[in-house]
Structures are given as structure tokens and as C-alpha cells.
């Protein structure tokens, strides 16, 4: 029998890797017509576990099923998940009320390299719900503001209804010194007074120098492709462009096989990768 070696740094919530903790929803906020943020605590009102920015957790709507979500924020007594209603389980999740029982297991996966980013300028590029995983890192950087340089957030969505955390962007993040937020939508819309353009050209127009700057990118496939090409064209190095991947996941612990890409498991070895790491993954689509 092969020796059992624990070489992953993930702590684990329950006594068993695949068995969730019983938790409850303590707060629900409606970000957009199809996005809600859920705060989850243990039944005793404690934070279920500690996580690092970029990590994920498996959230169960107990009779319906469980899904992997990024942890978009954590507080002293809660973890927060920002969930778009796109399928069966997320539909059930959106129907929950405060006080509802849910299951939770995690944290899973690696984290954004927040230590390596110290001393650097950081450019966040997000599209739609893709801001949810970036939020955990962005708020971490703001909580440790002195350790990091200039912070830019380039954020877009098809319509104003696709933009999440608008309150934070306008009233919180952009008020922090040397934090610059740039928001656009793709289609002109009545009442929208901001920029209307796609993310990649928007990025180019900002003319941010690439020296000592890392990029953290998360969005849909076309945003990812166009922004990746734009950034590489502008001279950013592949190892300075960081992203977080999405795949179907069932176990979250590198066993069930769904998120296998090449020799890697996105749930365990990811979800955070640099573009240069992705280049070594066969058919990672990016």
C-alpha cells in the first residue's frame, strides 16, 4: 500500500474530505437581477474555515446538490460566495432565505500569489461575474494597502445589469489612495454615462506601463482571449498574467477526474495559474 502523504497545504473543514459541515446562510444581498452574494457561517455563528484569496469551496444546497464556488470574501464570522443564477443548483441557491441550512466543505485549491505581488503595481481585469474571484484578492490588497503599488481595476459587462459590486467600486475601492477603477459596458444603454467599449481596447487606451506590474485576469472565454492577446501584445510577460480557471468539479480533492487537464487537476493544483503555467497544460483552451 502506498504511503499516505499529505503534501497539500489546504486545511479541511469536516473530519472527512467529502462530507460537508452543516452551515447556515446569514446574509443575502442582491448584486444584479441574476447575481446574489451569500454569507455563510457555522450553526454557532462562526466562520466555517479560514481561506486564502483565490481558494474555492463546495457549497451544498442540501437536497439539490453541491457546486464549487470561489470564496469572494471572508469576514471574522463568515465566508461569502457571489453566485450567478445559471443552472439547477444555483437556481435553488437563489431561492434560499436567510437562516437556510446549507452544507459547506473546503477550502480547496491554491491561492492568488499575494505574497509575490508585494511591492508591485497590480492591474485587475474582470468581466461580469469574473469579478467575484478577483474581489477576494482585491480586498486583501486593500487591507494590506502599504505592501502594494498602484492598483487598477478594469471591469466590464454587456449591460449595467451584468456589473457586480458596483457599490464597492464607486464608494469603497475607488476612494482608497492610488486605486483607479475603470468601468465599461459593451452595449450603449439608456442612463449609462460611463464608457461603452470592449475590455481589450479599453485596456489598451489606459496605456499602463508593464514595468513592475502584474495582471490578474478573469472573465468569459472571449474576454479572456482578447485581453490575453492584447496584454501579451503590449509587452506583458506570460508569467506576470495570472488567471483563475473554471471546470466542472464534483469532489474538489483531485480524485473524481472531471477537472483533469493534462497531468493537473484544476481543483487541487489550481484554480489559479499564470499564463506561462497554462501554456504547459495540453488543451487548456486558453
Amino acid at each position: 500500500m502506498s504511503p499516505i502523504k499529505i503534501d497539500h497545504d489546504c486545511a479541511r473543514a469536516g473530519a472527512l474530505a467529502l462530507v460537508p459541515l452543516v452551515c447556515k446562510v446569514t446574509e443575502i444581498s442582491e448584486e444584479t437581477p441574476d447575481v446574489k452574494a451569500f454569507r455563510v457561517s457555522t450553526l454557532e455563528g462562526k466562520r466555517p474555515f479560514e481561506s486564502q484569496p483565490g481558494q474555492t469551496a463546495m457549497l451544498s444546497v442540501i437536497p439539490s446538490g453541491e457546486c464549487m464556488f470561489c470564496i469572494s470574501a471572508q469576514g471574522d464570522d463568515y465566508l461569502e460566495f457571489t453566485v450567478k443564477r445559471v443552472g439547477y443548483v444555483t437556481e435553488q441557491l437563489h431561492a434560499l432565505s436567510v437562516g437556510a441550512t446549507v452544507g459547506l466543505r473546503g477550502p480547496y485549491g491554491n491561492a492568488f500569489p499575494y505574497d509575490e505581488l508585494k511591492g508591485k503595481d497590480v492591474l485587475f481585469v474582470g468581466g461580469g461575474i469574473g469579478l467575484a474571484p478577483l474581489r477576494a484578492l482585491l480586498t486583501y490588497l486593500l487591507d494590506h494597502r502599504a505592501d502594494y503599488g498602484r492598483i487598477d481595476l478594469v471591469y466590464s459587462g454587456s449591460t449595467p445589469d451584468d456589473l457586480i459590486f458596483l457599490h464597492d467600486i464607486k464608494n469603497v475601492w475607488s476612494q482608497v489612495p492610488d486605486v483607479h477603477t475603470h468601468v465599461s459596458i459593451y452595449r450603449p444603454c439608456e442612463g449609462w454615462e460611463g464608457e461603452v467599449c470592449y475590455t481589450a481596447p479599453f485596456l489598451k487606451d489606459l496605456k499602463l506601463p508593464q514595468e513592475n506590474r502584474a495582471v490578474v485576469l478573469c472573465g468569459g472565454p472571449s474576454l479572456f482571449r482578447t485581453c490575453k492577446e492584447m496584454l501579451l501584445g503590449l509587452g506583458f510577460a506570460a508569467e506576470d498574467i495570472i488567471t483563475t480557471l473554471e471546470m466542472k468539479m464534483k469532489c474538489g480533492i483531485g480524485k473524481c477526474g472531471r477537472c483533469n487537464v493534462g497531468s493537473r487537476y484544476i481543483c487541487l493544483d489550481g484554480p489559479v495559474f499564470t499564463l506561462s503555467e497554462l501554456a504547459d497544460l495540453p488543451g487548456s483552451e486558453h
Binding site: M1, I4, H8, C10, A17, L18, I253, L268
Partner: peptide, 16 residues
Amino acid sequence: ECMDDVFLTKGFVDEF
């Protein structure tokens, strides 16, 4: 041996 590698190594042990 292959199943042991999958279920018992690489960070998480599958207790089942």
C-alpha cells in the same frame, strides 16, 4: 496500486 495513488495521495485522503 494505481487506485491507491489516486485516492490516498496528493494532499487529500479519500476516507471512504
